[in-house]
Design a protein around this nucleic acid. Sequence first.
DNA 1: ATCGTTCCCGACAACGATTGCATAAAATTT
DNA 2: AAATTTTATGCAATCGTTGTCGGGAACGAT
Lengths: 331, 331
Amino acid sequence: MEPITIKDIAKALNISTSTVSRALRGSYEINTETKKLVMEYAEKMNYRPNPIALSLKENRSRAIGVIVPEIANNFFSQAINGIENIAYNRGYHVVIFQSHESYEREMVNVQHLFARKVDGLLISLSGSTRDVNHIENYRENNFPVVYFDRVPEITDAHKVVADNFDGAFRATEYMIQQGKRTIAHITSPPVLSITQERLAGYKAALEKYGLPIREELIKFCYFSPEEAFNAIDSLIKNYQPDAFFTASDRLALNCYEAHKKKIIELPKDVMFFGFTNLNVAHLLEPPLSTIVQPALELGQTAAEILLDIIENKRRGKGYETIKLKTDLHIR
Amino acid sequence: MEPITIKDIAKALNISTSTVSRALRGSYEINTETKKLVMEYAEKMNYRPNPIALSLKENRSRAIGVIVPEIANNFFSQAINGIENIAYNRGYHVVIFQSHESYEREMVNVQHLFARKVDGLLISLSGSTRDVNHIENYRENNFPVVYFDRVPEITDAHKVVADNFDGAFRATEYMIQQGKRTIAHITSPPVLSITQERLAGYKAALEKYGLPIREELIKFCYFSPEEAFNAIDSLIKNYQPDAFFTASDRLALNCYEAHKKKIIELPKDVMFFGFTNLNVAHLLEPPLSTIVQPALELGQTAAEILLDIIENKRRGKGYETIKLKTDLHIR
DNA sequence: ATCGTTCCCGACAACGATTGCATAAAATTT
DNA sequence: AAATTTTATGCAATCGTTGTCGGGAACGAT
């Protein structure tokens, strides 16, 4: 069956479409009798307003867009679940797009979501995004955007992030307290906010304990496994680190993979600490201690702020950057 | 800036909207001069047709819907990547929804996608879906649907699946050839097509080698970890299996988790074989051999069939069930 | 009987784009 | 010069819904 429209109802009951429309939304200026008639018929015929017509008319869609680099990543899929929780409860749908770490894809996604009149956007930037003009353009014209996790450096924006500095600091501190002195840091591209913050936390901990910051122990890796393998290999060959601090799921797994494939020969008693939401961390050997981001809460918080903006419930409140605490799981 | 419309262009150039519309699509009946004028102005003003208006007019959206139980699952996220590949190349967008293994959520998702006029649907059924009337209702009225992975039993439908029987058969056969005689099978709810097929493959292999089919070695588990833990625990206590054949990512991980937590004491030389697309399988201890589904190809194939249906490129071809071969990874 | 209210409802336009039909002007044929 | 065809454009309807405006009927007040 083609979906039934307001026109069909009007024709069937011999009244005008305006009356049907008003009756359905319970307008006070419609006779109670008429209202009942319309409501019952609509119910019987399983009438559903056409959301596309509504979007066209009202210039909105009751949907929010989410752009993440990859959904095949525990952190992001948990964050998405948080977003969906809040959004569904508040009557919004969630449209998910992946940038696949590509700036171009990200641009296209933003444009498409905007053209499709999503009421707002939640975005975690791609690894190759150098600036956010493609987003700020829209935001300048009152398009609501909340950045989360991987956020831009601009100050006048809503952002929700994990406390990356603190997490990295505490992890590094723990490794030092366990007697580690040569702590390698394998991390993501330096352009990302999370990379910078985690790096700063790592350095701050070293400084606090009077350890030297050795740039040669810090390796930035893009998105190919080989790059990570090489980085790890050269670290071990040249500096024999007694601990590895990896900044992402991917890099942690790359380490274990290199180990497993005997690409690298691990020093004894080496310690692994990762900034990761891997759900298999506790199953790995040697143990992987982790700094876990509150992914679900992060998503929820970001969604709540976005919906508040959309529904104008944030009068008075300015821009803010919300930082959520991370959890340390020592293994 | 509010997006520019065809009307704005018409006003600016002092011509009618029809002319603009036709000029933009290069209609032959528009003067070459006028066309150039319009095209250039549209280009300059960065005109983009309003997709919502188009959807309303044309009753379609150039988008396809995808419903999966969970995106936080390697198999599904790979399948989605396959779908996106094909869809984007053919000019379609992909709208992703999760059913979270809930029949109700699945129904709502289907309704919403249909109301939003997606041009077709790719779906892998939720674990609590007992029938597919909520989908077939729409399909009867020519709404294109392709089922993948977890498919219904109905025959007149397009389906794309992995060869679950064959994969399970080969895995079980391998375990038998390695001398295993008490092979436990921990699997998903019996209502799922994949459960049935994998079970059948398992049984067929046992039969081929003259081993008894012991129903007490077969455990169906729903979606709580405790259930799996208990199942594993009681299997070990009562029957000391020398091999475990798990039917999903989740169940394989549950096994390792139970092992790690010392909830279970593993028999020596026990073998693990899992139907899974986990990207960490090779990192686990004891080794997890796997039957890997061609998730990406599965998504691609399903998307191709769906788009062919949408674009009427399947004249003559009837319903078919496409089975893709699985890969055995022995570890 | 006239006026002002109140109640209930319908006509019309609008959102942005497409398209069948009509038509004016120009070009061509007779 | 008249008739016909071609070329180029505009008008109006359409998709489904809502908001603005206006108006008829019924009622009470004057």
